[in-house]
Design a protein around this nucleic acid. Sequence first.
DNA 1: AAGCTGCCCAACCGCAACATG
DNA 2: TCATGTTGCGGTTGGGCAGCT
Length: 257
Amino acid sequence: MGRSPCCSKVGLRRGPWSTKEDTLLANYITQNGEGQWRSLPKKADLMRCGKSCRLRWMNYLRPGIKRGNISEDEEDLIVRLHGLLGNRWSLIAGRLPGRTDNEIKNYWNTHLLKKLNSAAAPHKDLPHLATKPTKHKKPTPAKHKKPTPNPLPPIDDAAPPKAKVCVPKPIRVSSAFSRSNSYDSLASNSDAAYVPEKDLSFPPVPWPPIFELDGDYGGADDFLDGGFILPVLNHSDSISSDVNMLEQVYEEYLQLL
DNA sequence: AAGCTGCCCAACCGCAACATG
DNA sequence: TCATGTTGCGGTTGGGCAGCT
């Protein structure tokens, strides 16, 4: 769209995927597994670039993908994780069973940003969110900017000092802990606590127990990359202690990094 | 009914990290 | 250690649609 095509895609199809293409891709990956994206289109008889195939699979065709209807629990979790991790959508998505980074990113940019902006009063849980969150910017004439090393929103002077002033430089999650490898593989040999909707065209992929869906996400067994287990948040605690817990958790997370 | 406007989200892009030789 | 190829991530775009005038 505006830009010149990546790779050497001359002659390759672009734009929305047809049902036929979806079927071809899904069938191929079902039979041969993920990976080898570069050569996949040729083998699967698709006139697409590997990148496009990967994206389509990850964001749409992959088993266990949930679409739409982001619950309040999920929304709350997104807000909290964004406060903790910044714009690291893939990490955030990793905590939300069946959600993709793209969907969360879109949800953040469309719904949550609006919500947070319209909230005149500071977010009671995470006051820093009342400040300018990252906003979908107008296209910059400059080249694609590198992701900000510190994606956290600026700290509001009026807000209580937050422990996290810096965030670890966004690094690529090692393959050992990537979503496709970590969760899916974990899930394949773990007891499923979460079972996606039944009307999937693919067998549901169980996800590890991220949080108890008991109507209050506060009772969360969250964990970060590297098998770091976050303590269970006691939702009967006060909000401030909840925030303290997040900060404490974040400190431990930094140390582990 | 037609035109306009703004929003949503699937898909694209460039870049950096990772893998391999 | 370096060069080259591949993969994954986050930012951005724009087509399509709903709501409004």
